[in-house]
Amino acid sequence: MPPPQPRLALHDASSVPLPLLCSRDRARACTIDSFAAPLDALNLPAPAPTPACAPPSPLCTPDFLASFPEPERIILHQLGTVLHAGYGTTVRRIRLASGCDIVVKHGPEIRPEEVDAMRFVREHSAVPVPEVYDVRIWDEDVVFIYMEYISGDTFAAVYPTLALDAQRALRTQLASLVHELHALRAPPGALVGCFDPDDAVGDNLDVRLAALVGATRRAKPASTRMTSTRELVAWIRAEYLARARERPALRGAPTAGQPERWWDALYAPRLDPDAPLVFSHGDLHPFNLVVRDGEIVAMLDFGRAGWWPEWLDAHIAASGSPYMQPVTRSNAPSSNV
């Protein structure tokens, strides 16, 4: 394992402006002042007190930003070590001339709003998220995010090697981090699945639903301007029923022509239509968590983050790995886990 890199605090955006934040056309500040009460429905432990934010780092200066390789050079020379590649995204660890390591995430599937989500989490919670240094665009629409490198291994790699007490502590920390994210409630009028309030596309809607019912057609809803969990659940139900009738054998869907009864028995209890919209990671699985010395030191990949019902992260986490079960309602950490 490489030696830990010093944490570099995100620069003050007013002194060293990012060329791009919330969209390809202009920068926007993303703020919210409302914080939620504890999420009793998830039965998660209360998070530890939020520490004071780190002061701006003197290392993140215009000269520091100027030392970053340009996107074209990264592509042409295949710079750095590839940490991940797939689904239209490549993540590279690149060492600068100064000896500092950074991570560059790029690809045609990267959304600029991911930067907004990361900055939002850093500014309004103590959830550990890599600090974004810069965002650049190559070939008109390929986004490059330059961010902090945080050393460690994935939750998936570390968890099986730990003793039972250490596993329990890691699961408890994970549940606490989810609790803290979900304490950030959506502002009035926020669109389901969209962190950017100006984004009416709702691209994230069809991507996350397979983890919930496993039988959506991955179609866009007729109206992408959903503003409540009840609207979302109604659309999921309609998609599920249509899919079940088209392919009755898919994922155990009933063959007796009674998909409504199957929905009511199996899925409706899991999708509370009255659940509040909260800030959610949207892709919470063990490869998006970095662990070092028995603690989660980074939560990665906020490309699907947005305002979702509070049950979404729990269902995605539980479906992705048995190690992630503690963030569900029925498997919260306890003394006998």
Rank of each mutant, 00 (worst) to 15 (best):
A242E: 15
A314F: 01
T161F: 04
R245P: 01
M299P: 00
G107Y: 09
P55R: 08
G252N: 09
M147D: 04
A66Y: 11
D12P: 01
A29G: 06
L212T: 05
L284H: 01
R218F: 07
G257V: 12
F279S: 10
V129S: 07
G88Q: 02
A242Q: 12
V82A: 13
Q78F: 09
V327K: 03
A169M: 09
K220I: 11
V143K: 00
H124F: 15
D101M: 03
A13N: 05
P333Q: 13
V297E: 02
R92K: 15
A97C: 09
A9Y: 04
R217V: 08
P45N: 03
G107N: 06
F287S: 11
T328E: 10
T89V: 15
R247Y: 12
I110T: 02
P49N: 13
T154P: 00
W138K: 08
A305M: 08
E310K: 04
S176I: 10
R92I: 12
S57C: 03
T154M: 01
P69S: 05
A183I: 06
L205A: 06
A305T: 06
G86S: 05
L205K: 02
P333G: 11
H106Q: 10
P55M: 12
E239D: 14
C53H: 15
R24M: 15
F64M: 10
T216C: 10
M299G: 00
E114P: 03
E114G: 05
E231P: 00
H11A: 15
A46V: 09
T227A: 13
R119K: 05
A169S: 11
D206P: 00
D12G: 03
P188T: 11
A166D: 15
S23L: 09
E231M: 07
V158M: 04
M1G: 13
A157M: 07
G189P: 01
P188F: 11
T229S: 08
I74E: 04
A13T: 08
A222P: 00
H179R: 07
R26P: 00
R7W: 06
T161Q: 13
L271S: 04
T227L: 10
P259N: 08
F64C: 11
I74V: 13
A314T: 01
N331P: 00
I102W: 02
G214Q: 07
R247M: 13
R208I: 14
N43T: 06
V104E: 06
T61A: 02
D272W: 05
E72G: 09
L300W: 01
L39N: 11
V129I: 15
S57R: 03
P71I: 14
A298K: 05
A298M: 11
L300Q: 06
D139F: 05
G88V: 06
P333A: 12
G99I: 11
H179D: 06
R261I: 10
A54G: 12
P58H: 12
S223D: 13
F35A: 13
